[in-house]
Design a protein around this nucleic acid. Sequence first.
DNA 1: AATGAATGAGCTTTCATTCAT
DNA 2: TATGAATGAAAGCTCATTCAT
Lengths: 209, 209, 209, 209
Amino acid sequence: MVATAGNAKRTARREQRRRQLIDATMKCIARKGMGSTTLADVAGEAGLSQGIVNLHFESKENLLTETLHHLADEYKAQFNKAYENSGPGPAEKLLALIELDLRPSICDRRKVAVWFAFWGEVKSRPTYRKICDERDQYYDDIVESLAREIITEGGYEGVTAESVAIVLTSMTNGLWLSCLISPGSFDRHKAMLAVLEYLRGVFPRHFPQ
Amino acid sequence: MVATAGNAKRTARREQRRRQLIDATMKCIARKGMGSTTLADVAGEAGLSQGIVNLHFESKENLLTETLHHLADEYKAQFNKAYENSGPGPAEKLLALIELDLRPSICDRRKVAVWFAFWGEVKSRPTYRKICDERDQYYDDIVESLAREIITEGGYEGVTAESVAIVLTSMTNGLWLSCLISPGSFDRHKAMLAVLEYLRGVFPRHFPQ
Amino acid sequence: MVATAGNAKRTARREQRRRQLIDATMKCIARKGMGSTTLADVAGEAGLSQGIVNLHFESKENLLTETLHHLADEYKAQFNKAYENSGPGPAEKLLALIELDLRPSICDRRKVAVWFAFWGEVKSRPTYRKICDERDQYYDDIVESLAREIITEGGYEGVTAESVAIVLTSMTNGLWLSCLISPGSFDRHKAMLAVLEYLRGVFPRHFPQ
Amino acid sequence: MVATAGNAKRTARREQRRRQLIDATMKCIARKGMGSTTLADVAGEAGLSQGIVNLHFESKENLLTETLHHLADEYKAQFNKAYENSGPGPAEKLLALIELDLRPSICDRRKVAVWFAFWGEVKSRPTYRKICDERDQYYDDIVESLAREIITEGGYEGVTAESVAIVLTSMTNGLWLSCLISPGSFDRHKAMLAVLEYLRGVFPRHFPQ
DNA sequence: AATGAATGAGCTTTCATTCAT
DNA sequence: TATGAATGAAAGCTCATTCAT
């Protein structure tokens, strides 16, 4: 009993440290870029000592992979939450998901920079690609099925759920680039309006003026 | 005269070497990623010796910046060419520009990987940001004015040129991400159809069935 | 009384732990080599935790020295046992000592590897040298006095006890090297025959055909 | 022609640097031991900079292997020279080879320490084992065939060439241990006398008083 | 007495940069 | 202009040692 409690506690502590280091890693990547982030930076950011990262993650490569995993999981969690907390109809859900991507806490330069840092390495790191692809697919699948529901409900013609999903998925990712690259001129309100304009165009009965 | 001719020749040679090294850099970045590309890799890829990069570019930082410049200039050149070679109407031009972004020679994993490699460093390198931003702005401005022309011509209502530009710009960038991340499932034909579906929705008279 | 018994028990436990760790050390050295043996390896081999070695030996250096001490003591103990258990004559004793060195339990690659691991560090570690030297001297002195007895008994001429001791001592050490380096071709039976052939040559009346 | 000469020069320089670094390595191993020899030590000993070893040997492991190779080759070269420079008879040759092993330039604590440093790692490094084994075999084969010649010439009975080779090979290796461990009491003259006494015993007509 | 998380010095290795040729 | 040997700073990683539990 005591031993079990002790182990549970220990495991919890370990997990906490890992989280702490992953957080520090994201901060460093956002601030200095992936290429210039050293293990010493990460440890320093976490207020811990040199060897700590290798103690908890074995290697830098592993730390980065785990960080990406965490990033993707965190995103999915917020995605699911937004999906569930929204109104019951597919249009409401779709809107909620898009709003999520443009929400300041997500579509934030520092956060987005981390995503782009990983995307920048995707070509040469199959592991990163897989994780990123999975998140993208997850998003795309749900958006597509929501679009399908809407199309069925509204009897829309000349639109396919697949195309809508492609447009929305690529748009949200592309908007993140604007947020990253043009922080001065990027305007999340205008971006939202652009998306809404698109949705009104394709699904006029579900997204009225 | 002779001296001038000699200088011109010399300058041309220099420029040729620089191009050769920039090409090698892009190949390396595409293959190994930005973080793992060393000057030795670049020199090796170009079939030249160790010190060559510093001889022609002074520093690695400089080489990368010049590479990005080259990438952006090359893009703009093709962009302008596509613009000019297309039919005279704004709708034709708009379509030509979007087709450019999805053309196999541009929307190619290796090419796109280089763009993402730089975007991944944008947050921590203001110089990169500026170059990328400029290209984006250039694209966006032209797309927006084309949209404006189309709206005026067609008397479309409920659509703003700004929104259309946002949608199209972010979409094309976002589609590159799919090309990079999901090379298996990304289908440039479906992507083109999705864009067309969008354009038909907003500009039905300019993009008929 | 009770306290004394408790102390004795405690001391015994401590001693047992130290033995356990020394055994683990020898196993590790044999398997991974001295340079690659870490305290974590030793603790792991003993089935105990990280800090255990420093708790019982203060430092790695100390652990190694104690291990060598143990190795030497163990050898001497077996040496003395072999000496005492053999027949009463000097020739019998001499033979028993040589047989000991070639006995599978002693002239075993893993055991021998540990000796060589320490000999490999002797030049730069006076402490090791001293311990090794003492064992060698111990062996040499006894072998020399046995040779002297045999020479006196047999009235052998043209032979000195000192030379015989040199030959036998260096030979047994050298045979260990063969055991270590040529485990495939080393043949302890042939080795024993070679030694016997030598002894028959110098002491024909004590070691008849 | 010029290019070839340049390349030859360059190759020669490279080889010279490698030799210089191998020499430094042996000095360091002799002085500090194998486990405590760092690449910085080696570079320092050679009067060169930090990165030099990896430039010429890729890794520390590789440096050590090459050092052992060099050690073995050098030994064989001296062995062959001693063999050839000695008188024509097998007994003279045998004596020359043994004298070589006890010669101050070979049976020197610093030199011997390097051999033992490698022997100490043999068990856990198959590569080292192979190199050491080969040298040993080389020695043993030649000693055995010389012994065979002597036996045939002298018509000696009760002796086998194999046994003589085992005795002499193991003895010379074992004497190196004495040289290493008991530098105070080891006496190369007495050692030589012991070997001679042995040879006189087995081959009395070839090695008369 | 024992654990194992944490430290930090020190190691090997990498690599941009320099420079004699 | 081009080479490639050499440098040395800085990185990732290892591990003996410490210490709160």
